[in-house]
């Protein structure tokens, strides 16, 4: 009898990620992400606005433009926008950062949705991050913050959190401090997230971004495929109909090589 119960439990555990999420945020924050896509070239720095939404039991972190695009699409589908239709879809906001990170609060899990070219993937990992708190304090962007440090994905991070916003969350997969992370950067300043705005409105939170279902996999396989796709970029583009001329192939390869600095360098 006992054995049967255990088997039943295992079946439940292997079910994928989340069930459907569809709620409005309680709090919304904008972070500015400045990142250097080529570790050898300081001029490859780019910046983009990211959106952190705090809900009842989950939080959602993704590119601000991506969120705008997804909510425009769902509004059009439900018919609540008169002058738009799906034929306008190519005209909606876009971004190069495709991940959507959902941190689940009752459980210890983070569900990540991300893309490799046009394919969508989903993987689940643990939320646990070991933080070490330091006595340093600083006022950043108007908030009194205290320093904490951790290692994640092969990088050392320095974070500043504030108990003036007692939400144990932050940008990307960083969470678990007794206050919202105002700023976090890695030791080389290749990835810097900084809180720049607190938004008034309520935003829709959802784990459904489009009609196509993602490929469910694990973190290690996802990052392996990501690396492969960069090595194979030219042929991937040929798949989609773009033929690269021979002399230009080196440039494409160079570009792909220059994107050698993902936020997670090590992934187990």
């Amino acid at each position: 009898m006992k054995y049967r119960n255990i088997t039943f439990l295992f079946v439940f555990i292997t079910f994928q990620g989340f069930s459907q999420i569809d709620e409005f945020s309680k709090y919304a924050f904008i972070y500015e992400l400045t990142h250097q896509s080529d570790s050898t070239d300081i001029n490859s720095k780019r910046s983009e606005n990211m959106l952190l939404l705090i809900g009842e039991d989950i939080s959602q972190f993704e590119s601000y433009n991506k969120h705008r695009r997804d909510s425009l699409i769902s509004k059009v589908k439900s018919g609540s926008l008169e002058n738009f239709s799906m034929s306008n879809m190519p005209n909606f906001p876009r971004t190069k950062i495709h991940y959507k990170i959902l941190k689940n609060y009752p459980k210890d899990s983070i569900t990540v949705y991300d893309n490799i070219f046009t394919d969508k993937f989903e993987y689940v990992e643990s939320k646990k991050i070991d933080w070490e708190i330091y006595p340093d304090t600083l006022t950043i962007n108007g908030y009194k913050s205290q320093k904490a440090k951790t290692s994640y994905g092969g990088r050392s991070y320095e974070a500043w959190f504030t108990t003036q916003i007692p939400i144990p969350d932050g940008p990307y997969k960083f969470c678990g401090l007794p206050g919202l992370i105002i700023k976090i950067s890695d030791s080389k300043n290749h990835y810097v997230f900084e809180l720049t705005d607190v938004l008034e409105n309520k935003y829709k939170m959802s784990n459904l971004s489009s009609h196509s279902e993602p490929f469910f996999t694990d973190k290690k396989t996802f990052f392996k495929k990501l690396k492969e796709s960069k090595d194979n970029a030219i042929n991937k583009m040929a798949e989609m109909g773009f033929i690269v001329a021979d002399e230009s192939k080196q440039n494409v390869r160079k570009k792909m090589k220059a994107k050698n600095n993902p936020i997670e360098l090590v992934f187990d």
């Binding site: 708190i133 205290q146 108990t163 939400i167 007794p178």
Partner: peptide, 17 residues
């Protein structure tokens, strides 16, 4: 998800949380 911190008396420095 409430934040509980232990600080030294009359400071804001968190020593544990």
């Amino acid at each position: 998800e409430a934040s509980i911190t232990i600080t030294e008396l009359n400071t804001d420095n968190i020593i544990s949380y």
